[in-house]
């Protein structure tokens, strides 16, 4: 039975697309047939982060409105088996997505895939609502920063009122917190909201904490989902998050200070 998971946040720039790319890649690596859909019509970026921008011919909007077959628009990832990308249009706007059209595509994808990951646009308007409408689960990407936490709370409200599950009176969407750009040093100095603070306010279970890691930018420059970079702490944290998504018990890393040697401490101080 296919599962539809929306990656959403309300606020822009918190790491939705990075997370959608990493998590879908991770699910595929674990052997699940996965498709990741870009819902940000007009601001196409998922293909860039996934490194497939030069292979886009047809897109999600073409499938909905222009009679293009889904198989023509799906891009198969060359690095990871079982992974497909459905890019969006760069030229149309959010009105190009109709609920009936999206539903038709979702039904077709449900028949072929184990996981359908919907990369939501920022905001709480039509595009974001379309991305979350068909979801069974939600990954709420949040930065430890007040405006991001507040917007995440708004999105949680929408998940529980404007989704298909809410309208049909089915079990509510299961929402998970993915806390990104977590800077443990600043948390310890008392300058940044800590995981527990954010959990207190949003009151949803934690899927993962992604440490602030320069490798995230490095990988996005290269068009490489960060989870594929072995040396990246963020990549490791995403791998843990994927395991938790699959129901495994994994201890939370990057939330407590690591034991560091004196030399390491000196190097960090002078950096």
């Amino acid at each position: 039975m296919a599962k539809v998971i929306v990656v959403t946040s309300g606020k822009g720039g918190v790491g939705k697309t990075t997370s959608a790319a990493a998590i879908s890649t991770g699910l595929a690596q674990r052997g699940h047939r996965t498709v990741v859909i870009d819902f940000d019509v007009g601001l196409r970026n998922l293909d860039l982060v996934m490194g497939v921008e030069r292979r886009v011919v047809f897109d999600f909007v073409n499938v909905i409105n222009d009679g293009i077959r889904l198989n023509q628009a799906l891009i198969k990832d060359k690095r990871v088996d079982n992974l497909f990308i459905l890019p969006t249009s760069q030229t149309r706007d959010k009105d190009a997505l109709t609920r009936e059209g999206v539903e038709r595509v979702m039904e077709e994808l449900r028949a072929e895939f184990d996981y359908i990951i919907c990369d939501s646009p920022a905001g709480i308007e039509k595009g974001a609502q379309m991305a979350l409408y068909f979801a069974d689960e939600a990954i709420v990407v949040t930065n430890p920063e007040i405006s991001s936490v507040r917007d995440s709370d708004r999105i949680l409200g929408l998940l529980h009122s404007r989704s298909r599950r809410a309208e049909l009176g089915l079990d509510p969407i299961r929402a998970h917190l993915l806390l990104t750009r977590y800077d443990l040093d600043r948390v310890q100095r008392g300058d940044m909201l800590k995981l527990e603070d954010v959990v207190d306010i949003l009151a949803i279970p934690v899927l993962g904490v992604i440490p602030n890691d320069p490798m995230v930018l490095h990988c996005s420059n290269l068009g490489l989902p960060v989870i594929l970079e072995r040396k990246s702490r963020a990549g490791e944290a995403y791998r843990d998050a994927v395991a938790r998504l699959l129901g495994e018990q994994v201890e939370m890393r990057f939330v407590k200070p690591e034991r560091r040697g004196l030399l390491d401490w000196l190097v960090r101080r002078s950096a």
């Binding site: 008392g190 300058d191 940044m192 909201l193 603070d197």
Partner: peptide, 13 residues
């Protein structure tokens, strides 16, 4: 320590 996180949490609540 500036402890601005504490203020942030209270405002958020």
């Amino acid at each position: 320590g500036s402890r601005s996180a504490e203020t942030a949490k209270q405002r958020l609540q």
